[in-house]
Design a protein around this nucleic acid. Sequence first.
DNA 1: AACATTGCCAACCGCTGTAGT
DNA 2: TACTACAGCGGTTGGCAATGT
Length: 266
Amino acid sequence: MVRTPCCDKSGLRKGTWTPEEDRKLTAYVTRYGCWNWRQLPKFAGLSRCGKSCRLRWMNYLRPNLKRGNYTKEEDELIIKLHESLGNRWSAIAAHLPGRTDNEIKNHWHTTLNKSTKQESRSGEPKRSSKSRSNREKNIRKRRKEEQENAPANPVTQEILESSQISSQPSPSPSSSLSSPSSDHQLSSSNSTTTTSDIHAPDSSNSLAGFSDIIAELAAESGGTFWTEPFVTDYCNIAYYPPSPFTSEALLCSYDYYDDNVNTLLW
DNA sequence: AACATTGCCAACCGCTGTAGT
DNA sequence: TACTACAGCGGTTGGCAATGT
């Protein structure tokens, strides 16, 4: 993960998502769906690439995501599925509602992989893949520090690089493992997303009286209020700007959110 | 107390498959 | 058929907290 708050060449933000960015993305996707990840950040007022937005939504902001400890049953299921499916994490995730492929993958590499290896070769001095990767990580770290501290002499640089032991694993035939799109049951991204696909806020919620608040906020925030999704600090109300599909702005309640999203938003 | 190592996991990168033209 | 754009996948990275020395 690249957490350092920085911008890439094209001015797009990278690294950790801020609560404000989360709010904007959540507000936009829940209202309009992910009709086009590439274009979405522009309309949602985010300085992120579409890919990053998609990942953030799928792995963290999406409603009904299960977070926290894995149950024994889940662990057993993952191990079993991994035996039959291999590293097809999205296919495995399809069997565990509320869990994302990324989360399962992390869990596998940090916990399950270790325990399965321990079982398969007990007696042998154990060296988990994780600790190996950590050693490699430290080597990389030191190497990086050395390079940063090293004088910018191209010859020295070349010698350093040529003496490096590659810590990169050999390329795996990941392409052969790529799952067909039919596996992607969790996919919420396609251009034909309908309003019923979207967890649309319940418009029956009474919002009378909030228009004044919104008008006030609009005055306070200047022009940006009308160009970005906005979540008020006062109540479970979000303001949505016009989308590419509708010219009407909308006020919506967040009451339908599950605990995860509520925690994030409030 | 200070430093080193390990574990966790969010996020990025590069590649592939698919759909549209 | 070839090309392009996009979504999605799996591998990898690296920040940070916890733990060990």
